[in-house]
Amino acid sequence: MGMPISHIMASGMTGMRAAGDLVARMQFDKSMRIGEAKDFVAKKLGVSNADLSDEFVMREIREELDIGVITSVPGCAKGIAAKMNIEKLLGIDINCCDKFREITG
């Protein structure tokens, strides 16, 4: 248990606490290297690259864009709803969102 937490604290972008999930998603979706992925996400969010790991900056942005926040905020988009907003933000298709749309017509 100490290992993943240690890595996240030492080097990680801390996922939904900041913008780690968004940067990781661009690495996977477009095979972007770290610099390119950060540039891409930062531009979409209108922030600096350093802000992508800044909880203070990202907290507000995530709530505004409704792309999922890490704490339990009633009414905020969760699960697939949040991911559909991430699709729009990043201009990508997410597989489970496609399936959701297929099922719901």
Partner: peptide, 12 residues
């Protein structure tokens, strides 16, 4: 504990 310089974080 040590950590990367702020701004150099990477996805885990």
């Amino acid at each position: 504990i040590v950590g990367v310089e702020p701004g150099l974080e990477v996805p885990v």
